[in-house]
Nucleic acid binder design. Structure first.
Lengths: 166, 166
DNA sequence: AATTTTTCGTTTCACAAGAAATGATATTGA
DNA sequence: TCAATATCATTTCTTGTGAAACGAAAAATT
């Protein structure tokens, strides 16, 4: 039995999944092989660096991973000494997570490589191309936002969004 | 400790991962909740439908999942009666997988919904927008192809590729 | 022809991720 | 003020994935 009428090669969700997977796997060689970090750990590390102190919950809302995943990533990062956890004074339930000096150093190296990785991938892309790509992606997010069943989009830094679309 | 110099909101691999994840999750409500299929099962089903008969290996090369995952998906699909497995006569190692009539029916319904899903997401996109999006994604794939460490891109149907870029 | 090597599909194993449950603390409301 | 509810982080528990191992069959080599 054979049906010619549907072709995954044209199907956006599939193409997006393949592309994303290829890029993620390649990138994970940078922070995985070279720094021993998993994807959640890398994302958490970057997000913690954006603020002075963050709770698990705050990170969870940003990195698009479930709370347990974030919790485990933070613990691992604590074990390896890249972040420090301290119970909040005002609210004993909260855990304040912040980058250690070692974490800062690792982050510095890793972001440099991440940047060069991205530059490598986007090598042949002009400024206009890049802008177009991001705008198209933004528009897809906007379409998704209209769907009540769609997962929430992790919040974008305001400066970034203004800069991108302004 | 705080560092402002790296922003995930701008980082292509991250943005791509989020976007892809949001779309995949939403789509999986269609074939998951409504048809009880997992992502690998859905992909296998579509790929099997493209040819008269396929082996696990052929599918594996196309769907961007590991062989065990494909094997399990095929077994599950066989259990639910959507595909039929028969040992090849010429080569006893190979398993020929083909769609059953029931599988064909399910596929028909599911592709209709997939199409409408895609149309929904791409609703506000003109033909030019869509073309641009796909061309940009193709170019990213091309950049990845240059990297020796990058995972192989699953082969695209030739007609599709010609049509897309010609 | 016999043996080694390769290929194919499956199974086993280890691990990571998310759902649900848990324990601890805050907040709300009677 | 005390009970009920909500919130936060963590810990099970279950499931699914991919690496490696496995058995069977074909191909290649001697």
């Amino acid at each position: 039995m054979k049906s010619d009428d549907f072709n995954l090669s044209y199907f956006l969700p599939y193409q997006l999944a393949i592309l994303s997977s290829r890029i993620s796997k390649l990138l994970s060689k940078v922070y995985g092989d070279r720094y021993g970090l998993s994807i959640p750990e890398w994302r958490v590390l970057v997000h913690v660096a954006r603020r002075e102190k963050m709770s698990v919950r705050e990170i969870h809302k940003c990195v698009n991973f479930e709370k347990p995943t974030v919790s485990r990533a933070v613990s691992k990062l604590e074990d390896t000494g890249l972040v420090a956890k301290t119970a909040s004074v005002q609210d004993q339930r909260l855990v304040e997570i912040e980058l250690t000096e070692a974490g800062f150093d690792v982050l510095k190296g890793i972001t440099r490589e991440a940047r060069s990785f991205e530059e490598n991938i986007l090598g042949g892309f002009s400024e206009v191309d890049r802008h177009q790509l991001y705008v198209l992606m933004e528009r897809l997010h906007d379409e998704l936002d209209k769907h009540p069943e769609a997962a929430n989009r992790p919040p974008m830094d305001i400066e970034a969004r203004d800069d991108l679309l302004g």
